[in-house]
Design a protein around this nucleic acid. Structure first.
Lengths: 344, 344
DNA sequence: CGAATTCTGAGGCACGTACTTCAAAACGCC
DNA sequence: GGCGTTTTGAAGTACGTGCCTCAGAATTCG
């Protein structure tokens, strides 16, 4: 029954005319095997199409992998969904003998984030962190990596650090996507376009802003870009800014919110734009932004799938720990566009 | 070290004051255990947070799962990507002791598809099929299910059959999404809109068409919907249809292709609409549609991620076979919108 | 040639579970 | 009390690999 049941290490040993131990040495690239013997074993492996049973291997090497996910504290709906998704992965991870500790930290404070990273136990098999592009944070990440703990950045990157991967989207492209939609939805109308962000010191907000302005300025010359308004992801501040923009510029034709706080924007829009003529594009699919899309007050939402990002980060850390290969295509996070009709 | 290393069946037995065998009986719901004993064992499992080690369990029950994926033959780029993606899952599946046999069949012929389904070995632990909504196919699927082989439909559904899941998108919603984009991109312009499909007997094409017409008619009364043109996913026929539409209707302002054959549309567009005023929305991200988006001749592409669909189908079949739970959110296939700026 | 080194074989323990067998104990019933 | 049935315990084998030890063979080197 060789064709149905998978070949084992013993089958390889028999075919190659060597012992179990020698096959083991070859498979696990241990030293002290003659080149000629290696070749014979390799040939036998080829012939039988031998693949080490991952279950038995995992059982035998009794390692367990503990990972840590460092997420921003706060009421941000997107981040809340991230945190909530971690539990959903528990079963999934147990299958690979892995587990995740989740910690939260104030993400607007580089000092606190760096301290939190420094405080992490070095026994972790890997760490995923929603980072902040700041020298302090960069140094902390590099220290962690230097101590032998692989790091992936999640959602927000620190490109210059020694993290092994970034799991997230190209935020410049996301900004350009928003700009294209705003421009096309305006369909040739002219006017001014307002931009809101959480903070320009957040790399992702800044990049979106940059991409948005760049494309809008180049491809839609009829539109005037207004100065960027910062609002710390605070719905109340966002609402105030929207009201101010609507009052000051009667030619206001579109709004782009590169940050969070869409609830505030929505609230202000209800008052400032009762007819819904104003084109609005924001980020992240939350209960609030979803409801606004359905109500027709938001025209499009640019999003990234937090579940995919979590799983991708976990897979990458796991691959780092076990030495397995990764499917690159699967780990590329896409820039999702949601309108009223394709809400999940 | 009880808190770091996971508890085993033996730990549970010790705590419950019973033997290994009894714990095994409880864990695997075997008969002949007194209710009171079951409760004691359950309590011990709770207390220790015992979870059976999936690796050891998998090793002990020496089952292997063979699945079969039945895909359409033909040069269709989307389907080719589907087929190609199966190999990429091989490693992934080996980890769960599963493997996939991939077979192809002419999807336009219900009789052939039904015969292919009937010819499948009943030893498969599950089958995924790109189905065709036809009574013959439905009956064949139901026969397979009756023989104890779980079936999931992939991309194209047979809702009335006894398949356990459908992995794919809501094509009516996809059509509505396309309509919204066409309408918004036209930005108030009036004119007529052409619709192309592969075949109206294909459920997914028909549903897209339906969703598209429905929303366009309701929300964009300034646009006239032209009669649907069928073209068997043939680029040459598509090109001819586009040329004919462009010639006959000088008010043609947008085109929607609900089927494949985008290469043909692109070729015809180059000639018929050199200025790029015509709004075009199509389906599926292929090298061709990608290039057209970048060139600016296509305005948007509605897509589904074939890799996700494959993995989802595999996960669902695996869950069916092992009795594991599925993460519903993860298995919902999203309707992707791609424009020039958010191409992956 | 002898010694040191490099290879190889044989065997065993461990991982944590599934599944089996057999005997002993507990229980119900008449 | 005796019988039959249900429940439980004890013990074992098996799954396929990682990792270990130790002895003996083969090879190289001085």
């Amino acid at each position: 029954m060789q064709q149905t049941s998978h070949p084992t290490l013993i089958d390889v040993a028999r075919l190659a005319g060597v012992s179990r131990a020698t096959v083991d040495r070859v498979v696990n690239r241990r030293p002290n095997v003659r080149a000629e013997t290696v070749a014979r074993v390799r040939a036998a492996m080829e012939a039988l199409r031998y693949r080490p049973d991952p279950l038995a291997a995992g059982l035998a090497r009794r390692e367990r992998y503990r990972f840590c996910f460092l997420l921003p504290a706060g009421a941000n709906a997107f981040m809340a969904e991230l945190a909530g998704g971690i539990d959903a992965m528990a079963d999934w991870l147990a299958r690979s003998r892995a587990s995740i500790d989740c910690r939260t930290v104030d993400v607007f404070d580089p000092r606190a984030l760096a301290a939190a990273i420094d405080a992490l136990e070095r026994s972790y098999a890997g760490v995923a962190v929603v980072a902040l592009d700041d020298p302090l944070v960069l140094a902390a990440i590099d220290r962690l990596v230097a101590d032998g703990v692989p790091v992936v950045t999640l959602v927000s990157d620190v490109p210059a650090s020694r993290r092994s991967h970034f799991v997230g989207v190209d935020n410049s492209a996301a900004g350009r996507t928003a700009a294209r939609l705003v421009g096309r939805f305006l369909g040739g109308r002219t006017g001014s376009v307002g931009i809101l962000v959480g903070s320009l010191s957040l790399r992702d907000h800044m990049e979106r802003c940059f991409g948005f302005s760049q494309l809008l300025g180049r491809d839609f010359p009829g539109l005037t870009i207004l100065p960027v308004a910062e609002m710390r992801d605070d719905p109340a501040l966002a609402a105030a800014a929207v009201r101010r923009l609507a009052a000051e510029r009667e030619d206001l034709s579109a709004l782009y919110n590169a940050g969070a706080g869409n609830e505030g924007v929505a609230e202000a829009l209800r008052a400032a734009d009762p007819t819904g003529r104003l084109v609005f594009v924001g980020h992240e699919l939350t209960p609030a932004s979803r409801a606004e899309l359905l109500a027709g007050r938001f025209d499009a939402v640019i999003a990234q799938n937090p579940g995919h990002e979590l799983r991708s980060a976990a897979r990458l850390l796991l691959a780092d720990a076990t030495g397995d290969a990764v499917i690159a295509e699967q780990e590329r996070i896409r820039i999702d566009i949601f309108i009223r009709e394709n809400l999940p």
